[in-house]
């Protein structure tokens, strides 16, 4: 599937791009975090411990004034809490461990990012290939529909769809917990189905456009005509000739779309539309009410999103520069 030439140019680009290396490390780190979250987590991310609420991250000392009753009198006391290694990222307003929540939040983001992109690629590429290959009226009507989709800002459409359709979720059993490898972790993982489908639905148009363009141009090539003349079926031609040729731009775009979809997912979770409570965006929303006292609740999950998206964007830059220099001169650093 991957030719030697492609491997070589990927490697060459990687060798002299520090940014590509950083991107790969970030993405691998986050994927490992997400996959093995139950092993790295020190607490159950959904476990509330009200007596440990608002604990600052390790190395941070938080001083606040609290009302206490001393000898039956109400007094203001200065309370100092120090961050401990027990909760390296601190705890939220309900005493849940933020480090564990960040780890499990990576699962939601990555799964929605990957499956949402797959859905968009599947839908978009099929529609685009069909439109480009058959042309004529099929092409016209599909592309007009694409125009209408493009007239809606993706985020607005996603907010409307998810908000209106309601959050449908499935609970997937955690294989590590089911196998008895770890204890004290959530037995199931909430996968937001509506959200995943919607982020796919609002992004398929880009893939359709690329696939259609490629199909249009390749349709005219001699070898495709030859294949048709020897009686290859439309399906065979699409699968064997047209699809492999449009793969490169689709892979590059898909990588960048994973980043865009993670941002989209976090926005929707932030608005409370996702149906899962284990998400970076959801935690940022939770922390909004405590900005004056516990700044870390909102800050840390946001940093997690930022690093994840930076990593994927760098990966996308690397793929684009290595596979398709024609797309644009250079991006990133």
């Amino acid at each position: 599937m991957i030719s030697d030439r492609v491997k070589k140019s990927l490697k060459r680009e990687l060798n002299h791009s520090l940014m590509a290396k950083i991107g790969i490390v970030l993405v691998l780190a986050i994927m490992l975090m997400a996959m093995f979250a139950p092993f790295f987590a020190m607490h159950n991310p959904t476990q509330q411990q009200l007596d440990r609420a608002h604990q600052p991250p390790l190395g941070v000392t938080q001083t606040s004034e609290e009302f206490r009753f001393v000898d039956g009198e109400r007094q203001i006391q200065e309370v100092t809490i120090q961050g401990t290694a027990e909760h390296p990222f601190g705890t939220d307003s309900l005493g849940r461990d933020l480090f564990s929540r960040v780890l499990f939040g990576a699962r939601t983001s990555l799964m929605v990012g990957l499956f949402g992109t797959l859905f968009a690629v599947g839908t978009g590429v099929s529609i685009g290939l069909v439109a480009g290959y058959y042309g004529g009226r099929v092409d016209d009507s599909l592309m007009r529909f694409a125009d209408i989709m493009l007239a809606f800002p993706a985020l607005v459409l996603a907010i409307a769809l998810v908000g209106l359709l309601g959050p449908l979720t499935v609970r997937i059993p955690d294989p590590f917990v089911a196998a008895g490898l770890v204890e004290g972790m959530p037995a199931t993982f909430v996968f937001p189905i509506t959200l995943t489908i919607v982020v796919g639905v609002v992004n398929w148009v880009w893939f359709a456009r690329i696939a259609r363009g490629e199909a249009l141009s390749i349709r005219q090539e001699e070898y495709v005509k030859a294949a048709r003349s020897v009686g290859a079926s439309d399906w065979t031609i699409l699968r064997q000739h047209i699809l492999p040729n449009s793969l490169t731009p689709i892979i590059v775009l898909a990588t960048i779309q994973v980043a865009a979809i993670i941002l989209l997912e976090s926005s929707l979770s932030f608005l409370g539309f996702s149906g899962t409570t284990l998400s970076w965006g959801f935690d940022i929303a939770q922390g909004r009410d405590y900005l004056g006292t516990s700044w870390w609740i909102s800050s840390i999950p946001g940093l997690a999103i930022m690093f994840a998206v930076i990593g994927i964007n760098l990966l996308g830059d690397w793929l684009r520069d290595a596979l398709d220099p024609g797309l644009s001169g250079e991006g990133g650093v």
Partner: peptide, 26 residues
């Protein structure tokens, strides 16, 4: 400039808004 632009396109804007409120206003 390139570092800024990489971070800029990778930051969710609702979080950026909250961080600005946290730093500038609070």
């Amino acid at each position: 400039a390139t570092t800024f632009s990489l971070v800029g396109i990778s930051t969710p804007n609702f979080w950026l808004g909250i961080m600005l409120i946290l730093i500038v206003s609070v």
